[in-house]
Design a protein around this nucleic acid. Structure first.
Lengths: 156, 156
DNA sequence: TCTTGATCTAAACCTGACTTGAGCTTTCAT
DNA sequence: ATGAAAGCTCAAGTCAGGTTTAGATCAAGA
């Protein structure tokens, strides 16, 4: 073990490139747990650097913090996650990446057909034929999009 | 031409599956332009159905409304965009999809190495070695991430 | 003409993911 | 022992992308 097994929030921030405020925020959201020093300051485990790395990577995959929290909840509480734990979770991520790539390739194919005809019409191109859920993270009119695809009309 | 070349906001909404409120919002953001009826109600061109379709598709590609507005600004003002216009813009999109897929594939490759070693450590895996800007749309600590990668430390 | 449904505007509200600020306290190197 | 740097809490602000509400007006069929 190291002389100092616990690190301060500033160090965790520096080692991961995440703002101190963001780390506090993650803790508040339950993605991270901190011990406290005698004076009440947070003290993190070195292993939390990995944890934060995971959060960052998962975010890039389009997972919300809530979803990430769920993944991390799978980690045995109280014990430092080991290599096997990370492998399991990383493998999960790998599956998601595959799905995302597949969805994008499908979209690309459809778009190619659109480019061919120059139409960009919804029915013909099928760019809105549901099933592409994976492509739908993060944007779009939230309540209506996806609630009607299939009945959506075309130009003229 | 049709008997009725202009459509009301409700019809545009119905034909595209977008909420009426969202259409007003898009107009306010400059993505759409409306004529007005005698009584002050919005009247859209049929071609605006395509325009909205484009907005939706571009959003799924991860473009922000501001970026979409920029793309659409390329369309000749005052004239109904034709097939060639859409082809040009769609081709732009196609390029972006390619980039996105490439970025994801790169991430997948790096993650595979991580799974192999179970480390998830930043320096070794290179999952945060800048240049992956494309993968970075939509999440992540906004101000610091990407401002320091490369100097970011590793576990231990 | 009347009435009902569609629209109008402006402003407030919402979620997610953080950041910022105020006012105070802890740490740590000298 | 002390003073700067780093931390603390809690509340409020921000930004994107819309939604909701309220109260008033428009449009169209019976």
């Amino acid at each position: 073990m190291h002389r100092t097994d616990l690190i301060a929030i500033g160090e965790l921030a520096a080692r991961t490139g995440v703002a101190v405020s963001a780390i506090r925020f993650y803790e508040a959201k339950g993605l991270l747990a901190a011990l406290r020093s005698g004076g009440g300051q947070r003290r993190f485990l070195r292993a939390d650097i990995r944890r934060v790395s995971f959060i960052l990577i998962a975010q890039q995959m389009g997972l919300s913090l809530e979803e990430i929290a769920a993944e991390l909840a799978g980690l045995p509480a109280g014990r430092t996650p080991n290599a096997a734990d990370w492998t399991r979770i990383s493998t999960e991520l790998r599956t998601r990446i595959d799905a995302r790539i597949a969805a994008l390739e499908r979209t690309r194919e459809l778009l190619d057909q659109c480019i061919g005809c120059g139409c960009l019409s919804l029915k013909k191109c099928g760019l809105y034929n549901r099933g592409d859920k994976a492509a739908q993270r993060g944007a779009g009119p939230r309540y209506l999009l996806g609630d009607r695809a299939g009945e959506i009309a075309d130009v003229d």
